[in-house]
């Protein structure tokens, strides 16, 4: 098979793992399914091409592609989610419980194990806090809307969007609020047709067509 024309793609954002189930549910499912909870996750990553964005979905063994030309992109929306607070509370509680177990007098080995676990979970909490607020980012075109899990943190998403915005504006031009207003305002319809009086009278005076009588 011949090698295809392969434009260079630049990855935007992170790994883009997401699941249709809420993350906190998956967190608790972890204690049931253990590492196999990863099977509930899908991967959707965003790449920047020369004149389009590429969304790659898939598993480790196959990939599906969606191409979004810069000229077709209507908007990006960033909506803050409560995952940030949810994870923060969950992890902080986990750290508190583990620390409490670590300082409870008893078996020294158990104290060291719980202390280490508290340290690990604490580090995860710190990373979570440093990465910033979580957001739900969506790309919209005239016919579709796609969720971009790889832009899941506010700071990072804003940085990536500023890069993409520049490229899209090079293609489409700058957004003009007046044009937007004009396009959304109801267009003046055609004036109602005036029926000439004569025609109206004719219509009134018109005699019905007589059917020929049988002799």
């Amino acid at each position: 098979m011949e090698e295809k024309e392969q434009p260079n793609y630049r990855k935007l954002g992170g790994g883009g793992r997401y699941s249709d189930a809420p993350e906190l549910v998956l967190f608790f499912l972890f204690f049931v399914f253990n590492i196999f909870v990863l099977l509930f996750y899908k991967r959707r990553t965003l790449y920047l091409g020369p004149d389009h964005l590429l969304v790659v979905e898939g598993s480790s063994y196959s990939e599906t592609y969606k191409f979004y030309n810069f000229r077709d992109i209507h908007s990006f929306t960033l909506r803050r989610t409560y995952d940030y607070i949810g994870w923060m509370i969950t992890l902080a509680l986990a750290v508190a419980v583990l620390l409490w177990l670590a300082i409870t007098p008893g078996d020294d080995v158990a104290n060291i194990v719980f202390g280490s676990l508290a340290g690990i979970v604490g580090a995860v909490l710190l990373v979570h806090l440093l990465r910033g607020r979580t957001v739900h980012c969506e790309l919209k075109t005239a016919v579709s809307s796609v969720y971009l899990p790889s832009l899941g943190r506010l700071g990072h998403a804003q940085k990536v969007l500023s890069q993409i915005r520049q490229l899209i504006e090079e293609e489409q031009g700058a957004f003009d609020p007046d044009d937007f207003e004009r396009a959304n305002s109801p267009a003046p319809g055609p004036e109602p047709a005036v029926v000439p009086a004569q025609v109206e009278n004719e219509a009134v005076d018109a005699t019905p067509i007589e059917t020929p009588k049988e002799e």
């Binding site: 992109i73 209507h74 929306t77 489409q172 031009g173 957004f175 937007f180 959304n184």
Partner: peptide, 14 residues
Amino acid sequence: MEVALFPAVYRKAD
């Protein structure tokens, strides 16, 4: 919520 809009929103399709 933040929204980044582009002219394609109000431009009529070719």
